[in-house]
Amino acid sequence: MTSTTTATRVCFQLHVDPDRVPEYLARHAPVWPEMLVEIAASGRRNYSLFLGDDGTLIGYYETDDDTAAQAYLAASPVAARWESEMAGFFVGLDGRPDQSAIALTEVFHLHDQLAAVSPTPSTESTRS
Score class of each variant (00 low, 15 high):
residue 53 D to I: 03
residue 97 P to K: 02
residue 78 V to Y: 06
residue 48 S to H: 14
residue 26 A to V: 09
residue 54 D to Y: 01
residue 2 T to P: 13
residue 95 G to N: 01
residue 59 G to M: 13
residue 80 A to I: 15
residue 25 L to C: 13
residue 52 G to V: 00
residue 43 G to S: 10
residue 49 L to C: 08
residue 94 D to S: 07
residue 64 D to N: 07
residue 13 Q to F: 12
residue 69 A to W: 03
residue 23 E to A: 15
residue 78 V to E: 09
residue 120 T to K: 09
residue 123 T to G: 03
residue 32 W to K: 10
residue 71 A to L: 14
residue 25 L to D: 00
residue 44 R to D: 03
residue 23 E to H: 11
residue 100 S to P: 04
residue 127 R to Y: 07
residue 123 T to C: 02
residue 31 V to R: 13
residue 1 M to E: 07
residue 14 L to H: 03
residue 93 L to N: 02
residue 112 D to V: 00
residue 10 V to Y: 05
residue 92 G to M: 06
residue 8 T to L: 12
residue 63 T to W: 02
residue 94 D to V: 12
residue 86 M to G: 02
residue 20 R to Q: 14
residue 122 S to C: 00
residue 45 R to G: 06
residue 82 W to T: 06
residue 1 M to A: 11
residue 117 V to Q: 06
residue 103 A to T: 15
residue 41 A to P: 04
residue 96 R to Y: 07
residue 23 E to C: 00
residue 104 L to E: 03
residue 112 D to G: 04
residue 60 Y to R: 08
residue 90 F to T: 01
residue 43 G to F: 13
residue 103 A to K: 10
residue 2 T to H: 10
residue 55 G to F: 13
residue 15 H to R: 13
residue 44 R to W: 12
residue 54 D to C: 06
residue 82 W to I: 11
residue 66 D to M: 01
residue 51 L to K: 08
residue 81 R to N: 05
residue 73 L to I: 13
residue 65 D to L: 11
residue 51 L to S: 05
residue 114 L to G: 00
residue 14 L to Y: 07
residue 72 Y to A: 13
residue 23 E to W: 02
residue 128 S to E: 11
residue 1 M to K: 06
residue 64 D to P: 00
residue 117 V to R: 08
residue 53 D to K: 07
residue 43 G to W: 14
residue 55 G to P: 03
residue 62 E to C: 04
residue 48 S to Q: 11
residue 34 E to W: 01
residue 28 H to N: 14
residue 26 A to D: 14
residue 72 Y to C: 09
residue 103 A to P: 02
residue 89 F to I: 02
residue 115 A to K: 06
residue 63 T to G: 11
residue 38 E to S: 10
residue 77 P to Q: 07
residue 66 D to F: 11
residue 45 R to N: 05
residue 111 H to N: 08
residue 96 R to Q: 08
residue 123 T to V: 13
residue 43 G to I: 09
residue 60 Y to W: 07
residue 84 S to R: 09
residue 120 T to R: 12
residue 6 T to Q: 13
residue 98 D to Q: 09
residue 110 L to E: 00
residue 103 A to C: 03
residue 78 V to W: 01
residue 4 T to D: 13
residue 55 G to H: 07
residue 100 S to M: 05
residue 18 P to L: 11
residue 10 V to M: 11
residue 17 D to V: 04
residue 97 P to V: 12
residue 5 T to D: 09
residue 123 T to H: 10
residue 8 T to W: 03
residue 73 L to V: 13
residue 50 F to L: 15
residue 19 D to G: 13
residue 111 H to S: 10
residue 38 E to Q: 15
residue 76 S to Q: 08
residue 11 C to F: 14
residue 40 A to P: 00
residue 61 Y to C: 10
residue 47 Y to D: 08
residue 10 V to S: 12
residue 61 Y to D: 07
residue 58 I to T: 14
